[in-house]
Design a binder for these strands. Structure first.
Lengths: 226, 226
DNA sequence: CCTTCCCTTGAGCGTTGCTCAACGCTTTGC
DNA sequence: GCAAAGCGTTGAGCAACGCTCAAGGGAAGG
């Protein structure tokens, strides 16, 4: 998606190294939406490698082949740009792990887990840099992180089927997600045991925690068919 | 500890507003160690309120009543300063939650949990800003965060008594700590139910997860005396 | 009293976030 | 077709901030 710009005009060289002398290509006039996408795509890649305060906007502009001024035209502030990139990453994650609507509740849970772990396997560094990094940063970032987690919590509760939703239940499900996040991220480092074992461990942890929290009926719904 | 400098000379005004005209106090020559402590104390307070890239070193120097140059004398780089502050916060956390060595294993576990929650209650914003913020930042920060979590993981495993330490066990204990961290932090926001219930939930979650992971003997050790 | 040590200063430099007025290509309306 | 409006784009320029460096000055030891 990063490089697939639907604009019909000439497109700048997005990937590949720079060629300072080679200015044969047109200056690349993109539509506002496409330019934003391109810039966010660059940010997604760069912020994966280094934290914000080491990110230099000049580099972003240079890589996009535009002037600094234009960058500020789209993102008035560095924080705006950062927030946009994190938001884009969040949207990506949410969309990549969307469960099929037609799947039964019990399977939806496993499916969300499966796709989430798959996402972490593919984009571990991105996840760490953009989400975990956001979790303790400025307020506008924390909100993005929290909202994204809310989506997963909500999906999980939906996957439980019809249960009474108490504050405690939400708390435990959220906590379970933290457990999943941490264990999966650590596991993805060197994959010390098979993927299936990990998924089983993570899936079984939910009913175990629900029972601990005094929600046996929800636990029963979360227990996968043996 | 923040303002208790053991230096016997005159001490700069650490807290309170600035008085640009009032230069009656001596320029405050501190020892290297005390100056570091003072600067780190200021950073601890400031970084709790805003993320690093919004932290201006001029302000730090101004609040300490020293020139910018001196700040760079002690911390050659802004990252160095940041790392030192985070490290100090980590040390504080570790020390504040140190279990009594003479307590039996079973009680040590509850004790660590109790003091940890107490710390989060007192310093929730500091914890969020400095640790969670560090968990996805630059490498040197991630390391501090990880090492601190290692301490808790180790303490917890020690609290389990003599059990076989497998990579999976470590993984689950670490994951449990993530659960604890998240649930406690969320709980501390508005304390929707009594503290004892929280502690019970967190404590019971450990054996539940250990059983899930196939470590019943460790789970038995983690089960608090009914 | 002199020497040494080191805490401390302040001027100054380069980078970087950000502003602003203007340019030119594209599209719209006549 | 032609002029006007719209919008993507530029580049000079400013202020803030991280960081350097040579030198000042008080305290401690002989």
């Amino acid at each position: 998606m990063l490089n697939k710009l639907s604009y019909n005009g000439p497109v700048t060289q997005l990937s590949g190294d720079e060629r300072p002398d080679d200015r044969t290509a047109a200056p690349a006039r993109l539509s506002g939406a496409d330019r934003r996408r391109q810039l966010i795509g660059i940010g997604l890649r760069m912020l994966t490698k280094r934290p914000i305060h080491e990110l230099v906007l000049d580099e972003v502009a240079a890589e996009a082949g535009i002037s600094r001024g234009l960058l500020f035209h789209y993102f008035p502030t560095k924080s705006d740009y950062y927030a946009a990139v994190v938001r884009a990453a969040a949207r990506r994650l949410v969309r990549a792990t969307e469960p099929r609507a037609d799947a039964p509740p019990g399977e939806q849970l496993v499916e969300v887990l499966d796709t989430f772990v798959a996402f972490l396997e593919r984009r571990r560094d991105l996840y760490l840099a953009l989400f975990r990094g956001a979790s303790g940063g400025a307020d506008y970032l924390v909100e993005i992180y929290d909202r994204t987690r809310d989506v997963f919590t909500e999906r999980t509760i939906t996957g439980l089927g019809p249960v009474e939703v108490t504050p405690e239940l939400t708390l435990v499900v959220r906590g379970w997600f933290s457990f999943v996040e941490d264990v999966a991220l650590t596991w993805a480092q060197d994959r010390p045991f098979p993927r299936e074992d990990l998924l089983r461990l993570l899936a079984d942890a939910l009913p175990a925690l629900l029972i601990t929290a005094g929600h046996p009926e929800a636990a029963r719904a979360a227990t996968r068919p043996a």
